[in-house]
Simulated scan of single mutants.
Amino acid sequence: MADVPTDAPEHCPGTQSEQAGKSSSCEGCPNQKLCASGATKAADPAIAEIGEKLSTVKHKILVLSGKGGVGKSTFSAHLAHALASDATKEVALLDVDICGPSIPRIMGLEGEQVHQSGSGWSPVYVDDNLAVMSIGFLLSSPDDAVIWRGPKKNGMIKQFLRDVDWGELDYLVVDTPPGTSDEHLSIVQYLSSTHVDGAVIITTPQEVSLQDVRKEIRFCQKVKLPIIGVVENMSGFVCPKCQNTSQIFPPTTGGAEQMCADLNLPLLGKVPLDPRIARSCDEGRSFLAEVPDSPATQIYLDIVKSIQDYCSNHVTDEHKAT
């Protein structure tokens, strides 16, 4: 899959598609003749370079959401923390939310900087076996706005994948921005020469969130990205004192559970609201380590175990012997 022109129609089939320039959605697009001629089908050499660079990464997991504010970055951070709790595993977290990089704050790394060596950019380490990379490390201040058009964002994602010295990893978790736009097309394109285990899709119980998540699921199906499963965040509120559960966001259409049943997708788990999750993110700490007795912690761990089991069953030939 190759870059979609920045002024392409909403349902652009992509420049690598056999329908490029020929689909009904191409009518009126200024790039139609160029795409139909096949001139856009030249492969980006960076794709092969990225495939080589990431050949030492056993498992690659994308975390997606249809809309913002559903706890996607929070989940990505705690997935990385949970995977790295096994000291024998090497884990990295890549933040490709170029315009809203919240991972440095959530991981307690604000103010850290990226260093360059002969082998590329060095990621920032939370622990000896947990590395993080984000554009947030390249900004002079956390309040700086990243005001970039698509091509520049795509170029930064390419650099993260090709030029960071990831080393040998058991898991690479990629935190993406909401939606199905430039960053998502780029990450799928640049990872096309390497095996991706699949995507974990984050939602909340409300229909307004589920509606956008269905679009995200359709995106995954169109670009042939496997879906590991769906996580429902903010699924009720568990009082830290009395442990009673209240429905803050009632699932008017059955929530993620009904959606997964309708679409034949695995529901990995339903994480309840716990105010201590937000506090741990603000303080840059792992909620799983800080509040091990929370019902949400156990649900997180069960979800992570399901993701690990899925990855173990989808080991590529190149990593079966390792």
Rank of each mutant, 00 (worst) to 15 (best):
T245H: 03
G269I: 05
D293W: 05
E257N: 08
T253C: 08
F237S: 07
S246E: 14
P275A: 13
G198H: 04
P240T: 04
T245Y: 02
S235F: 03
L268K: 01
Q308M: 13
V304M: 02
V231T: 11
I228C: 08
L225E: 03
C311S: 14
A296K: 02
G198T: 10
G254N: 03
E290S: 14
V230S: 00
P205D: 07
I303T: 05
C311N: 13
C239M: 11
P295C: 02
L263P: 08
V208Q: 06
D274G: 11
D212Q: 03
N264H: 10
R279W: 04
F219A: 14
V200H: 01
Q258I: 10
L225W: 06
A278F: 07
P226A: 12
C239Y: 01
F287T: 01
Y310I: 06
P272N: 05
H314W: 09
V304A: 00
Q258P: 09
D262V: 10
K224W: 01
C260N: 01
H314T: 11
K215D: 12
E283N: 14
K215V: 15
V304Q: 00
P275K: 13
D262E: 15
N264C: 03
Q247C: 06
P226G: 05
F219M: 09
G255V: 06
D262H: 04
K241H: 15
A278W: 04
S209T: 10
L268S: 05
L273W: 10
P251G: 06
V200C: 02
E257R: 08
